[in-house]
Design a protein around this nucleic acid. Sequence first.
DNA 1: AAGAGTTTCAACCGCCTGTAG
DNA 2: GCTACAGGCGGTTGAAACTCT
Length: 290
Amino acid sequence: MGRSPCCSKVGLNRGAWTAAEDKTLSDYIKLHGEGRWRNLPKRAGELSQTFVCLKRCGKSCRLRWLNYLRPDIKRGNISLDEEELIIRLHKLLGNRWSLIAGRLPGRTDNEIKNYWNTTLGKRVNDRKNLTSTCKQSNHPTKKDQKKTEPHHKNESNAVVRTKARRCSRGYFNPQQHKTEPIERIPRPGTVLTEDSSISNPVELNDPLSFMMDANMGQFCLTEILMNFEFSDIFDTNNKSDLSPSSKVPIFFPDETLEKWTEGDYVQPNMGCDHHLFASITDSEGDWLAE
DNA sequence: AAGAGTTTCAACCGCCTGTAG
DNA sequence: GCTACAGGCGGTTGAAACTCT
């Protein structure tokens, strides 16, 4: 005897959301806030100025809001910094997508999960198998080039297809940029808006410098990676306890987690132990291997 | 140009946990 | 302690977009 379904599925819409449904939902949440998802569709329909009844399951509403409609969602492709952080966090946390997403402001667990399953997971496996190719050519592929050009579909389609368009994979010539800072080329999929500015020229010949200066907008992930005291989290002398396969849960002190999620967590005079960080996150040791 | 094959990702599903009564 | 409910999470699915031949 299983649990009763979260709602009667009879007469409910399924599949892609329409623009009208999105508007009804976001209007309602902006006015009344999140929560009480089960009754939300009914109440939203009653209060909707567009008189669009939300024939959706409460869970579906929640998912739509959290994964797409929320105003603080960051659209566009995962940046290099974010990729690195996801990989490192995945090593530490495993498939705890919501925890990982919590460390990446604007990113949803669903997005990170999808990105891992379709891209990063494969890449990480490839790296393991062929470490020498990790410095693979950054020259744009045909595939990537195609992605730079938005594919315009019939706008009259009422269903909102919410796919971020991708940009070409950027590349740089190490010789060319040894001394001259260059403007960063957006990572594939970075959504270019009118105010999009990748303003910080970066010295790309130095990976650390690249990481240090990569501008993330709200804050710099690199600073998390560089300033974060991993020694606060665990005893580095006992790495075996951190194996993802270990049954021992990883406990992050509240203070630590707050630092990660707060916008102003970066402490200017916080210790910056690159070597410790590198030893932890870049270790090829078994304790991090999957 | 067209069809087949592949990739991407929004949405769904079912299970789990926390909580109120 | 038990039950039902609400919300959250991770795995999976399937349609659309994209690439290849």
